[in-house]
Simulated scan of single mutants.
Amino acid sequence: MPLETLSAPSLYVENSIPTFSREAPFANVLMDLQTQGWSVQDQFFSDEFTQALMDEVHGIDHANMQQAGIGRKQDHQVMLDARRDYIQWIDPDRPIRRDFLKVMEELRVALNRRLFLGLFDYEAHFARYEKGAFYEKHLDAFQGRSNRVLSTVLYLNDDWQDQDGGEFVLYDERETDNVLGRFYPQRGRLAIFLSEAFPHEVLAANRTRHSIAGWFRINNSTGQIVDPDQ
């Protein structure tokens, strides 16, 4: 069998895959964020681009993922009563990962131009929730104490059914027991919301669930302290 035939299923050449499923792909996201602070968009990326990301996360050996925790750097703690997902941070070391980060950089620029958020960078990880795994209700950032401004979640699951569970539940920023929406982790669905404003949770699923979680951040570095990533 020729070498190129062996490698073709996992080979994604940069910029060879159509990225978006629509013209002006950021328009609805920008409008929603401006008017309500959150947005959920189905089929945000093209089917080919979503499939490439799905192939990437499904191909990660579980031994190469780490148990997710709470906090950053030296404050990081594994708390299994709060969350039970496994993650792998996305570095630009493979073509599809580079392409994803490039696209989110384009979105960062658009967000700054339209909403004047002063976003500095974007970080993201693949997330794997095995059957029964969850993430309890929480905020991604606390007012005045974090550099995370906007959170994103892209879902990478085929043929998700209602009985599979695993919903992303978004709560009102003021009446925090009021549910704004319950969203199943369907293929290609993107959620984006203000990190300090909206409590949210991931309900336990009845099958393994994959996504990309990410954050647009501001730069909190000072002359004395370098703002860490991840």
Results as ranks from 00 to 15, higher is better:
residue 2 P to H: 14
residue 3 L to C: 10
residue 3 L to W: 13
residue 4 E to S: 14
residue 5 T to F: 11
residue 6 L to V: 10
residue 12 Y to H: 11
residue 18 P to G: 03
residue 28 N to I: 07
residue 29 V to I: 12
residue 31 M to N: 15
residue 32 D to Q: 09
residue 33 L to C: 06
residue 36 Q to H: 14
residue 36 Q to V: 11
residue 41 Q to M: 10
residue 43 Q to K: 08
residue 45 F to E: 01
residue 53 L to C: 07
residue 56 E to I: 04
residue 57 V to M: 03
residue 57 V to C: 05
residue 59 G to H: 12
residue 59 G to E: 07
residue 60 I to E: 00
residue 64 N to I: 06
residue 65 M to C: 07
residue 67 Q to P: 09
residue 67 Q to M: 14
residue 73 K to V: 14
residue 77 Q to M: 10
residue 82 A to I: 13
residue 85 D to L: 02
residue 86 Y to A: 05
residue 86 Y to Q: 13
residue 87 I to Q: 00
residue 87 I to G: 00
residue 88 Q to E: 09
residue 89 W to S: 03
residue 97 R to S: 12
residue 103 V to F: 02
residue 103 V to H: 02
residue 104 M to A: 08
residue 104 M to E: 02
residue 108 R to W: 05
residue 109 V to F: 09
residue 110 A to T: 08
residue 111 L to R: 00
residue 112 N to Q: 12
residue 116 F to H: 14
residue 118 G to L: 05
residue 119 L to R: 00
residue 119 L to G: 01
residue 120 F to H: 13
residue 126 F to Y: 14
residue 131 K to H: 11
residue 134 F to G: 02
residue 134 F to R: 07
residue 140 D to S: 06
residue 143 Q to I: 13
residue 148 R to G: 01
residue 148 R to C: 02
residue 154 L to N: 04
residue 157 N to W: 03
residue 162 D to G: 15
residue 164 D to Q: 08
residue 165 G to V: 06
residue 167 E to R: 10
residue 179 V to G: 05
residue 179 V to E: 12
residue 183 F to W: 15
residue 189 R to E: 02
residue 191 A to K: 02
residue 191 A to N: 03
residue 197 A to M: 14
residue 200 H to E: 05
residue 201 E to Y: 08
residue 204 A to T: 07
residue 207 R to P: 06
residue 208 T to D: 08
residue 208 T to Q: 10
residue 217 R to S: 01
residue 217 R to T: 02
residue 217 R to Y: 11
residue 220 N to S: 12
residue 220 N to E: 15
residue 220 N to R: 12
residue 221 S to H: 12
residue 223 G to L: 07
residue 223 G to K: 10
residue 223 G to W: 07
residue 224 Q to C: 13
residue 225 I to Y: 13
residue 226 V to F: 11
residue 229 D to G: 14
